[in-house]
């Protein structure tokens, strides 16, 4: 595998509970790439992101993410270098935004103070003590983007990258993905609004396989 290739999927198929979601997904993402992922509702974009995040094992085919072969124990070593921002927030509702981020910082071996810096960077310095359950969708989304700032992933996966974000926050998505890409990482963004995606190239998920859009 090319040293600069971060993600490869080769004929990856996936079915869950009897429904086929991916048939033969082929995909290559190189370091420094920012890739858009398009596709109609229910076409399996979220599932594809979860495969790339090593959270789902392919039913058939092979793939590697950050050098780790999917479906093997190699994935455990690379997981901390992957940030997945799903369409449901990966935050504990009863913890404050600050506590959520400090939890992440401590478990990934970062200085917990970076949590406050990151919150300030996404414009939520004043909301650090607000519980996640009392925060708006946009605030949760910004907090999750702050998580990417703390973890500095090599692979950033954003589901519905622009959902629920105001103009400022959309600029934030571009800035954070830009940072990851500049550090020789890669970013994959799912969106329903191709016009707002500032990406190098776009892929389309149709009938369980990936096409260049």
């Amino acid at each position: 595998m090319n040293a600069k290739t971060l993600v490869t999927l080769d004929d990856v198929g996936l079915s869950i509970g009897g429904s086929v979601i991916l048939t033969s997904a082929k995909l290559t993402v190189a370091a420094g790439e920012k890739v858009g992922l398009l596709g109609p509702n229910g076409s399996g974009k979220t599932t594809l992101l979860r495969v790339l995040a090593t959270l789902l094992r392919p039913t058939s085919g092979t793939g590697a993410v950050l050098g780790a072969e999917l479906g093997t124990d190699e994935i455990y070593a690379v997981r901390p270098d992957i940030v997945l921002v799903g369409h449901l927030p990966g935050l504990y509702p009863e913890l404050t935004l600050g506590e959520n981020l400090r939890f992440v910082a401590r478990l990934t071996g970062r200085d917990p103070r970076r949590a406050d810096e990151a919150l300030a960077a996404v414009g939520l310095a004043a909301a650090a003590d607000r519980r996640a359950r009392d925060s708006s969708k946009g605030m949760l989304r910004r907090t999750e983007l702050a998580r990417a700032l703390i973890q500095e992933p090599r692979l950033l996966l954003l589901d519905e990258a622009h959902a629920g974000l105001d103009a400022d926050a959309i600029g934030l998505v571009d800035a954070i993905t830009g940072r990851v890409v500049a550090a020789d990482g890669a970013a994959l963004l799912v969106s329903h609004e191709p016009d707002r995606l500032e990406v190098d190239r776009s892929l389309r998920l149709v009938d369980g396989s990936v096409e260049e859009a």
Binding site: S15, G18, S19, V20, I21, L22, T23, G39, P40, N41, G42, S43, G44, T47, V206, D207, G208
Partner: peptide, 17 residues
């Protein structure tokens, strides 16, 4: 039977919509 059912119908994700 389950395999045959899956193979027979191209019910890939998204086909329901």
């Amino acid at each position: 039977l389950e395999q045959a059912r899956l193979a027979g119908t191209p019910d890939v994700a998204g086909a329901a919509i």
